[in-house]
Design a protein around this nucleic acid. Structure first.
Length: 430
RNA sequence: GGAGAGGUGGCUGAGUGGUCUAAAGCGGCGGUUUGCUAAACCGCUGUACGGGUGAAAACCUGUACCGAGGGUUCGAAUCCCUCCCUCUCCGCCA
């Protein structure tokens, strides 16, 4: 049986808590609990009956073997067991059917929000946790990145549409160089200074991995899927990297494990039509450097704070104004128990843009992906898994252009990026 | 893409229809011996899902698991079918 995200035993033992925490998300996920538990109870009853019969069959079959080896007749026992075998087959079928009926519900129930997550309806209820720097002041009217980028000849939206479709980006010249430089800088930062191990995973993902991290089966329509193979384009490096250790058991001393990875991210953005249509705020393909942690359950909330700090450091080093918000119960992602978003200031649009989302999924993904560790008394327990953007590139690119734009429409980038841009930090029209 | 070989516990590896309750070895854990270490010797050994006892730690018990899924049989690691993966060689290719 496929491991479910919430342990059915936990739901059984903590029914009220589960109902209450699901209700806090405000999506009505708790309504399936009653039926889930009823089926589970029936399943266990049938299972017990079935296993008793199997036990009987095992014993009698052994007798048959013994009789036959002595050359005695065993046909009566064999006929009797034939009957028992039919009953067992029928019961096996019923048990499997009940499991199959419960599986979709188990796989589509979201994670329970942590007790420290504020209850709320949507993004408007997300409390701001802190703010770093201040929004830059201009003595001219700052332009949005789509104007800056086109005029500088570093972004080309219409030709990207010609090549692919709307919602794709063509970077050119210093634009392409900046994108590549940022990827390298971010990987260097997190590996050299924050202790992460760099990995470069496949960009095509199989179904089992997509289920492991929670993208499937519920969000199939958000994913790009290949027609001829059961493979999906990675929506985030979280998927391939988290699945590195699927079906594995860590020794306790192997935790925590930190990984970071660059991948392009492919998202259909189904249902987002008409939102953020200008520029590169919401696109079907963007680059991202992702941070992933596997850790002991006791330390996962400390690890979450550290991960957020690692992502914030990116913006601090680039001198970009940002704020950190704590997502409320109604705004959190499917797999997460607690999420911080980091939003960078985009001067040209006079608003904050989400560039990072750092989540503690606790054991939700570990349960689905069957990732465990052996604890001090030799028991296997599920690890806690965290993921966070460190950071998304497209919106970081946007914030850099809009924050560091000059009156003449050129852009002066922070010096820290110079080594990654061949020493050239001033992007001018040419 | 073609041909061949294979997939068994943490690892190596035996096992071709009936004490397989999976041999043996390695590793690991515990113990004995011992100035210490090593060696030797003895014992133990996986996962999942149920049921029972207990305040609990635990203990007792059943079932399933030999790549995955079906089938045959009273009984399957073993026989049959489908699929997946690995290795070797060939072809093709950045």
């Amino acid at each position: 049986m496929m491991p479910a995200m919430l342990d059915i035993r936990f739901i059984r033992d903590q029914e009220n808590l589960v109902r209450e925490r699901l209700a806090a998300r405000g999506r009505g996920d708790e309504v399936v609990i009653g039926q889930l538990l009823a089926r589970d109870q029936e399943r266990r009853r049938l299972l017990q009956e079935c296993e008793t019969l199997k036990s009987q069959r095992n014993a009698v079959s052994k007798q048959v073997g013994a009789l036959k080896s002595k050359g005695q007749d065993a046909s009566a026992l064999m006929a009797e067991m034939k009957q028992v075998g039919d009953k067992i087959a029928a019961l096996d079928l019923q048990v499997a059917e009940l499991e199959n009926q419960n599986l979709p519900a188990l796989l589509t129930i979201p994670n329970l929000p942590h007790a420290t997550v504020p209850t709320g309806k949507d993004a408007a209820d997300n409390p701001e946790v802190r703010r770093w720097g201040t929004a830059p002041k201009f003595d001219f009217k700052p332009q949005p990145h789509w104007d800056l980028g086109e005029k500088l000849g570093i972004l080309d939206f219409s030709r990207a549409t010609k090549i692919a479709a709307s919602g794709f980006i063509l970077y050119k010249g210093m634009g392409a160089r900046l994108e590549r430089g940022l990827i390298n800088w971010l990987l260097d930062l997190h590996t050299r200074e924050h202790g992460y191990t760099e990995v470069f995973p496949p960009f095509l993902i199989n179904r089992a991995s997509m289920i492991g991290t929670g993208q499937l089966p519920k969000f199939e329509e958000d994913m790009y899927r290949l027609r001829d193979d059961e493979l999906y384009l990675a929506p985030t490096a979280e998927v391939p990297v988290s699945n590195i250790h699927r079906d594995e058991i860590f020794r306790a001393d192997e935790l925590p494990r930190y990984y970071c990875a660059y991948t392009p991210c492919f998202r259909r953005e189904a249902g987002a039509a008409g939102k953020d249509t200008r520029g590169m705020i919401r696109v079907h393909q963007f680059d991202k450097v992702e941070l992933i942690k596997f850790c002991h359950p006791d330390t996962s909330y400390d690890e979450l704070e550290k991960m957020v700090a690692n992502a914030e450091r990116v913006l601090q080093l680039l001198g970009l104004h940002y704020r950190v918000v704590l997502l409320c119960t109604g705004d959190m992602g499917f797999s997460s128990a607690k999420t911080y978003d980091i939003e960078v200031w985009a001067s040209g649009q006079d608003k904050y843009l989400e560039v990072s989302s750092c989540s503690n999924c606790e054991d939700f993904q570990a349960r689905r992906a069957n990732i465990r560790f052996k604890d001090a008394d030799g028991k296997n327990r599920h690890v806690h898994m965290l993921n966070g953007s460190g950071t998304a590139l497209a919106r970081l690119f946007v914030a850099l252009l809009e924050t560091y734009q000059q009156p003449d429409g050129s852009v002066k980038l922070p010096d820290i990026l110079a080594p990654y841009l061949g020493g050239q930090t001033h992007i001018q029209a040419r």
